[in-house]
Design a binder for these strands. Structure first.
Lengths: 140, 140
DNA sequence: TGTATATGGTCAATCAAGTTGACTATATGT
DNA sequence: ACATATAGTCAACTTGATTGACCATATACA
């Protein structure tokens, strides 16, 4: 298996883990969440709310595309648009209770996944892999 | 950076490397190749030709979608449709000279990328990371 | 052998998720 | 105060996939 090149290994392992994450989310009642929603919701959670343009910059897509995604997530009751406190043109997107719940659930599942790997290869080895991946990101 | 969770680390590092790969391919004259084309062409190379349905199964998309991609790659002279030797309904997709060249070039670039990482973190450490990624794939 | 059913490939229509372009309302700089 | 920039939305279009219908050939089996 490790005769595969690095890029294929990264692609395959990412695909497997993201699929597992969303399968678990679905089992736990969050069947209407897809990866892009996760990234968007997480950014909102970290920043305690975000404007459309902040989200567009973060995700690398247009503000129009963000607007559509936010429409979807608002319909599904994960987020809410509120008037911007200082800029009357703007709005800020914030999490609902269900939004906070899905963030929390996602973290829990990610921990389970890492724990499962620790059981298989050990905590030091996992930490090493994470450090190496961080190196790839920093040094390439 | 390694306070990121494993899935985000995999996603980000994969994105960075695949972008670098295709940027290099573009510089070397293969500007009309996108990741999905690479996977398809590589599968054909390994198997010395493939039917549409084999490719669809391999890529996890419909045969109609494969047909469109093959249309594109045939137009760009990377592949060729030939009648199937034994099944008169079928066709086999094979590589042209340009198709073989892009496979070879891609391998070369992947080696460069890995070599660059070896220079940064060392060969043992890279091999360890690849082994660990293979573990993720096997054990999850 | 003949006939029913399955399979490989293509065409056409549709769908999903993004884009570009145009517009409104409000903010900001001079 | 007025010109220009910015936040957000609406509408039309593009791209890359899907589903459904079809033709030609293969395969199973009465």
């Amino acid at each position: 298996m490790s005769n595969m090149d690095l890029v294929s290994l990264l692609s395959t392992s990412f695909q497997i883990l993201i699929d597992k994450l969303h399968q678990r989310l679905s089992e736990l009642g969050f069947h209407d969440i897809r990866p892009v929603h996760g990234y968007l919701i997480k950014y909102i959670a970290i920043n305690n709310g975000a404007t459309g343009i902040e989200l567009a910059d973060h995700l690398g897509i247009t503000k129009q595309a963000v607007s559509k995604i936010v429409d979807y997530l608002e319909e599904k009751h994960y987020v809410l648009r509120k008037p911007h406190p200082t800029d009357k043109r703007g709005k800020i997107v914030v999490l609902t209770e269900r939004g906070r719940l899905v963030v929390e659930t996602k973290e829990k599942i990610l921990n389970e996944i890492e724990q499962h790997l620790i059981d298989e290869v050990g905590a030091e080895r996992l930490q090493m892999m994470k450090d190496d991946l961080a190196s790839v990101i920093r040094k390439t």
